[in-house]
Design a protein around this nucleic acid. Structure first.
Lengths: 250, 250
DNA sequence: GCAATAGTGTCTTTAAGACACTATGAG
DNA sequence: CTCATAGTGTCTTAAAGACACTATTGC
């Protein structure tokens, strides 16, 4: 059999043996901890297992649109709440045996959201919940979703450094301390409040002042904090680098 | 229904017919200029048009393996030469009408190679060539490949900053000046030789000395240069940042 | 008053960049 | 010899981090 004949025999136009799905690594911050959105699968394979929200891409549907739709469908979130969620493509996963049904290539997406209400499980799921990322180690996920989550978390941690991503995790108006809490939560390190404050204000376009302050001081006292909104920068320069990365470099 | 029964009753044809391809943005440096590998399509659609090397992913073939195979097939390069080419996934492109034949999702990959010989066109291509990136503006590419190339170039420029990617464009042993030429070529800026030299040696794990020097001085004179090989760093810290990025931040 | 926090001042250390300079080798 | 280049020295500036301190609020 010649190479050309071989290629013909497996022509995907005649035998669509591959399916394309999207999976969504949705992250938010609740109660001062980073949370990941998981659904409990209502159907095989991996029935009853926890997994990332996702599903098949529809004909004539863009990849990003499919991610948004699946996120909305499987969580019951929509409208204004969906508008404040930021989506971006993460990577594609296509190991031949990653799904027992058939060959499936999944285009994983990342979603970053400010604090959202508890999700309502959609049709494909028997449950949906925000799980603290710290509790992930004790929960097995379906398919290769643990790998996808790990990649997504590393991408999120990295993007905090050189993009204004952190502002996606807070409300439209926020204090510097709230922004610092995002960094501390996602990176898992405490940061120096004074130096962080000065740094955030010194990066052009990261935040802009609203001229307002919080109505009250903090719960345990302290002065009212100035309120800011996200600035117009798309890249941070100079970046906010994670402290103590020298060891992870090799 | 048990999980096993479900899998047996599962019919892949119930799911929408989407095909998955890989496309490869292969970059190398020839004659001091950044070059991109293009093939001339031998079959419709876009017959006769220049395009990225790529093709359908085979059953039971990993995405990265498909990219490597397509690169090898459509260029006639293989063996030891292929070993020195570094592949990584770039992003996936799945706009519904990006291919006139049917719904095709393409998982684009980046390939970085030291200077390779002129490619030999494979079965799907009537020609293959390394095209200087500077000449891209005057050549229309098939499908959405211009967008993919733009994304790939930006990714390459960015990865030079914080990874040892530049060492993939030179031979196993190289001088600091050769490494600097890579940065200058990919970024399109001249760099200060003295400062670059010191910086490269100061970043832990970027290069390690071979103890050797070049056999002769440069073509126009000058001392022999010390030879280095790639170090063991996977991330550069502190990074080698592109000069003058303040303007592109917004 | 006391504790906690917002925000600023200042100093040290590190890194980046400008510039000068020496040494080496091809022609 | 001349000229281009490898490699180093030194100074300036920018940025990161440590630490101290004041001011403002809740309790």
């Amino acid at each position: 059999m010649s190479e050309e004949q071989f290629l013909r025999a497996y022509d995907p136009r005649d035998y669509p043996a591959v399916a394309v799905t999207v999976d969504v690594v949705a992250l938010t911050i609740r109660d001062g901890a980073l949370h990941l959105l998981l659904i409990q699968r209502a159907e095989p394979p991996f029935e009853g297992c926890w997994a990332l929200p996702g599903g098949f891409v529809r004909p004539d549907e863009d990849l990003g649109a499919a991610a948004r739709r699946e996120f909305a469908e499987e969580t019951g979130l929509g409208g204004e709440q969906l508008r404040r969620v930021h989506f971006e493509q993460l990577a594609s996963y296509g190991t031949p045996d990653r799904d027992p049904r058939m060959r499936i290539v999944s285009v994983a997406h990342l979603a970053f959201a400010p604090d959202l209400p508890e999700p309502q499980a959609g049709s494909d799921a028997s449950a949906a919940q925000w799980l603290p990322v710290s509790a992930l180690a004790s929960r097995q996920l379906a398919f290769d979703h643990e790998r996808i989550v790990a990649d997504g978390l590393e991408r999120a941690r990295s993007k905090l450094e050189y993009t204004p991503l952190a502002t996606r995790f807070v409300g439209d108006e926020f204090t510097i301390a709230e922004l610092r809490a995002v960094y501390e939560t996602v990176w898992g390190h405490p940061l120096h409040p004074g130096n962080f404050h000065r740094k955030v204000l010194s990066v052009p376009g990261l935040v802009e002042s609203t001229g307002q302050t919080t109505a009250h001081g903090g719960a345990k006292g302290g002065p009212r904090a100035k309120l800011y909104r996200a600035g117009d920068a798309r890249l941070l320069h100079p970046a906010l680098l994670r402290p103590g990365r020298e060891e992870t470099v090799r």
